[in-house]
């Protein structure tokens, strides 16, 4: 029971964590990427479609990443080059992704009723670690994307806090005018951050179709991109915080299934709503100060 719960928590947390790490990089550069849900959904669809037609999980992953990057490149043109409203542009991309994946999905599979399934990513057991009771199967006998998400936590944290590039990125997110005056290219930094986030959102989407489910259904991302936005806030713009917050969301989602199965008196919706309520409370300053990057969400232009 506990083992299954932990396993499912990690499964739920992985795509959220991948997407949230990308969102963290983007937000540190000063862009609020509401389009993350769309990038994830597009990544999920094209990863599966490529894996299905080309019979290669690797090509599936690659196409998922490319789809995420394509969506974010479009967003970058809008919010970095044209300096339009980031929220409205992001929302448009979420709607676009729902539409495009829906149209392609039905065109390719809706009519024929062909099974749109693949053999999911293989699990890679890490020797004796995988045999540790309870924790082993949940953490050390997983597929490559779960490991990647875990490894990326310290790497992204180190990148943002300890590298020159990370410092430049933060400058673009805190004081874009000052960064520009110092000769940093704010536009390039934000473009780079959005492309990196596109890769991670694409991988997050690919995880949904190539690992979590072995198929695609319309709207499979089911709000997980928005959860990633919440996770960045709950984790207070810190990579390790993101890990904890995504595990919290993952646990809430898993507990919900367990509660439904047990038929307890506690409404399972409470567990589903709780992390969102927590996110708002954190922003409202309950339990300490949570400060977003100063220039978050502001388009930057030189005139």
């Amino acid at each position: 029971m506990l083992e299954a719960l932990l396993f499912s928590t990690v499964s739920m947390a992985t795509p959220i964590l991948l997407a949230a790490l990308g969102e963290l990089i983007v937000e540190r550069s000063g862009v609020l990427n509401i389009g993350i849900e769309g990038a994830m959904l597009t990544g999920a669809f094209f990863a599966l479609a490529a894996a299905f037609f080309m019979h290669s999980l690797f090509l599936g992953l690659l196409c998922g990443v490319m789809a995420g990057v394509a969506i974010n490149a479009l967003l970058a043109v809008m919010v970095v080059n044209l300096a339009v409203n980031q929220v409205v542009a992001g929302t448009a991309l979420d709607i676009l992704a729902l539409g495009v994946t829906g149209v392609f999905y039905r065109r390719l599979f809706g009519v024929t009723g062909r099974a749109f399934t693949i053999v999911p990513l293989p699990r890679i057991g890490l020797g004796p670690l995988a045999r540790i009771p309870i924790v082993g199967p949940a953490l050390f006998n997983r597929d490559a994307l779960v490991y990647l998400a875990m490894i990326l936590v310290p790497i992204v944290g180190w990148f943002i806090r300890r590298t020159r590039m990370g410092l430049k990125l933060r400058a673009a997110g805190e004081r874009p005018e000052a960064a520009d005056a110092l000769g940093l290219n704010v536009f390039a930094l934000r473009w780079g951050a959005l492309l990196a986030s596109g890769v991670l959102s694409g991988l997050a989407g690919a995880y949904l179709t190539l690992s979590y489910a072995d198929t695609f259904v319309e709207g499979i991302s089911a709000g997980r991109g928005f959860v990633a936005l919440a996770v960045v806030i709950l984790g207070r713009w810190n990579a390790w915080g993101l890990l904890a917050a995504s595990l919290l969301f993952g646990a809430a989602m898993s507990l919900q299934f367990a509660l439904q199965a047990l038929g307890t008196a506690i409404p399972y919706q409470l567990f589903l709503a709780l992390p969102y309520a927590l996110t708002v409370m954190v922003l409202a300053g309950v339990g300490g100060d949570a400060r977003p990057p100063s220039a978050l969400g502001e388009p930057y232009s030189r005139n």
């Binding site: 448009a92 709607i95 676009l96 539409g99 829906g102 149209v103």
Partner: peptide, 13 residues
Amino acid sequence: SPELVQVIQALVI
């Protein structure tokens, strides 16, 4: 599929 309508909406925005 009816999702084409969403593509139109997004493109308009």
